[in-house]
């Protein structure tokens, strides 16, 4: 019974984080941040490492470094004379390297690939609240974000504060990545943000559909992945990502029907 409760907790956390990742991923893709987002998730690793060294909750370590990296990207977004991709590549590969060196061997595997089988009740409640908060905030700012993505000039001239919106958005991405690292690990978290959204884009005509299916695909990937991993006693993280990849392949069949 205790094992079942543990499993159900991890399933619920996974589903909530999967859905919220998919939802944020929809904006990530439209902002053409897929690559940046993927590399960014690696920054969680040294964060986890420092948290373990200091004996604090790895979530906060991961979040702190992710947030710093987000601010860096936010600053870089204002500058057009720098190639963000290159800087992101260098900076984030280095942070992966630091993370691998800092994290004790025992925890490294979990930090890289995730392990949701040992989460507690409080982790679950926190994840649910965070995921719910992400949905509420994003729904509130979605129109303005979209306007900013389509035409910055139009957005600013209609009084939209683009910088502030981007900051809120990146903050939420940092939250979801720090949470998602528990589910799929920092190496694969980029996939949970990007792949459901990429699949949803194939089958959506409107933004409404896009955001909806992106969340649903994230939810299904996480749910099915964690469940199947439990049955076959394999790692949930990679299983979740493979489920999302399978959904992407199926979505290709329905593309442009």
């Amino acid at each position: 019974m205790a094992i079942d409760f543990q499993f159900i907790t991890s399933l619920i956390i996974g589903i909530a984080i999967g859905a919220a990742s998919g939802f944020l991923g929809a904006f990530m893709i439209l902002k053409r941040m897929a690559l940046v987002g993927d590399a960014l998730t690696h920054v969680a690793l040294p964060g986890i490492g420092f948290a373990l060294l200091l004996g604090i909750n790895p979530f906060f370590g991961a979040f702190a470094l992710l947030f710093l990296a987000m601010i860096l990207i936010w600053k870089l977004e204002q500058r057009t004379d720098l190639s963000i991709e290159t800087i992101v590549g260098i900076f984030f590969a280095s942070s992966l390297a630091i993370g691998i060196l800092v994290i004790p061997d025992l925890e490294l595997y979990e930090a890289l690939f995730g392990d949701i089988s040992r989460v507690g009740l409080w982790d679950g409640i926190f994840a649910l609240i965070a995921a719910g908060g992400i949905f509420i905030i994003m729904i509130k700012i979605a129109d303005k974000m979209l306007m900013g993505i389509i035409s910055e000039d139009l957005a600013i001239s209609s009084g939209i504060k683009i910088r502030r919106l981007n900051f809120i958005f990146l903050f939420l991405v940092a939250v979801i990545v720090a949470l998602g690292v528990k589910v799929v690990g920092s190496l694969l978290m980029g996939g949970l943000v990007i792949i459901p959204a990429a699949a949803a884009r194939n089958i959506s005509r409107s933004f409404r559909q896009f955001a909806f299916w992106s969340s649903i695909f994230g939810l299904i990937s996480a749910g099915c992945g964690i469940y199947v991993a439990k049955i076959f006693a394999i790692l949930p993280g990679p299983t979740v990502i493979l489920f999302s990849a399978a959904i992407f392949l199926i979505s290709l069949i329905f593309k442009r029907r």
């Binding site: 129109d143 389509i150 884009r201």
Partner: peptide, 15 residues
Amino acid sequence: RDFPLTTEEFMQLAP
């Protein structure tokens, strides 16, 4: 071309 946004959604973006 594949930006998922309908004309109606676009026209409704700005308050």
